[in-house]
Write a protein that binds this DNA or RNA. Structure first.
Lengths: 248, 248
DNA sequence: CGCTGCCTTGATCTTCTTCAAAACGTGTGG
DNA sequence: CCACACGTTTTGAAGAAGATCAAGGCAGCG
């Protein structure tokens, strides 16, 4: 059922301190947000950002903190989650380099509606949200890129809502695996490997099921030959079969 | 249990044909999107829109149609829903005047990911998405307003995801009622009346439960004195109690 | 080599869906 | 104005899906 080999997931190779200026410019240039800008324009924008490194598990901010900053993921993976009053955590999204999170509106005095945790060693670029708004007002192409990204994530959220409403646990797990693979998948010997340490609990939090149900479902998928998995990793061997189960 | 009176929900008083030019300018001016523009600028933007009237239940577009147009709700209510391959429909959102829906990106050749239905008599203003992008590029304040609206709706979608993951049917129904009341509620004799014809099936579709469960839960809330309801209408009498149940 | 998390598996129990039928309201046509 | 017919809502009973409770196994690490 479970592979004996060591986790095939490659650890992030950077140290938080490697969040250097060279990386910054490269990231900012590569980010779709600044695609339409000249080199000089990106450099002037760069001056408004400051980099921050986070260790795995470290909090970038907590839900309820006063919201002041917008972040861009430069290196690493960030988990966005919401808490219920009784302590249960729901994993809303996993962000990868190029994604933004944090405070976007111009209003001050608001609080973050969710918690952001570094899932791996992470370098994030932070900018005061008012400054970022200034950038968007100055360069409409930036505003349009951010809008596209936001709109796309809203659609993705709607797809999740659709899955959570009236689909079975098996379907939701399959859907979640496909979603993760689309974002983080890397082809290899084992199949399409989800490039990130991923516990059963993480997966369960995304699929809206319990850890035990997630584990049982994965065992079943493994028996059927659709996936391979081990401690903190999953690889897809038959994505089409999973797509079939997920119901499109 | 159920009130004997006729539905206290006022029908929308407009005919689709009443989607007139006077209404258009008023709507566009009132829309937060164009808040920062001069009268003349709004009028020139207005030239790009064309109004369309829809009867209750009529489709504005179907999922899978080629996506070309962005719409603004001028009058009425629009339901956004997604279909599963097996025909089940999930109600993603209900839109009211001022909200946008449809195709936002500059890409052509895409399809709508969801279906939009007029829930009441509706007047919508349509604009070619490329033209709208032009407007946003020309007036950054418009782009920022649209971004704010989108971001807000993404957050709302995240809140729904949180509810659907790991909350009970009772909690989800309570949450859905509060959400609807916040958007459509009108104080009156009966309490906070949800100003819209709303069947048990609609509510169930939003809360991710079956019609029967929705009905049972509403009966229970009625017995407890938290709500009043009848055919196609619901009014909240004790929103705090519902908030308590929903878990914040 | 033993400790600490993670993962798996089993048994039980609660919740919600499903299936079925009856009651109710609303609008219609006589 | 009344009676009927249709769609909506309610309620019941049975069944299934998944959560919860509990225990044991396995991997990595000091």
């Amino acid at each position: 059922m479970t592979d004996r080999r060591r986790s095939p997931v490659e650890p992030e190779w950077i140290e938080p301190e490697a969040c250097s200026l060279g990386v910054r410019l490269q990231i900012l240039h590569g980010a779709p947000f600044f695609a339409g800008l000249t080199h000089a324009q990106v450099e002037s924008a760069n001056a408004l950002f400051r980099e921050r490194g986070f260790r795995p598990g470290e909090a970038i901010y907590y839900a309820g903190d006063e919201a002041t900053t917008l972040y861009l993921v430069a290196v690493g993976k960030v988990r966005l989650l919401r808490h219920t009053p009784d302590g249960q955590a729901v994993l809303i999204d996993i962000l990868t380099p190029g994604d933004y999170f944090g405070h976007l509106s111009g209003q001050s005095g608001e609080t973050y509606p969710e918690t952001a945790l570094a899932h791996t060693s992470t370098c994030a670029l932070g900018i005061d949200s008012a400054d970022f708004r200034g950038l968007m007002a100055q360069y409409p192409s930036v505003a349009l890129s951010v809008l596209d990204a936001t709109h796309e994530r809203m659609q993705a959220a709607h797809a999740v809502i659709q899955q959570l409403s009236g689909h079975t646990a098996e379907q939701r797990v399959a859907f979640t695996l496909l979603k993760l693979a689309a974002k983080l998948g890397e082809p290899g010997d084992l199949g399409l490997l989800i490039q990130m340490p991923l516990s059963r609990e993480d997966l369960a939090g995304m699929a809206g099921v319990t850890t035990e149900t997630a584990s049982r479902t994965l065992s079943q998928f493994t028996r059927a030959g659709y996936i391979r998995s081990g401690r903190q990793w999953i690889a897809l061997r038959d994505a089409d079969a999973l797509r079939e189960i997920a119901g499109e």
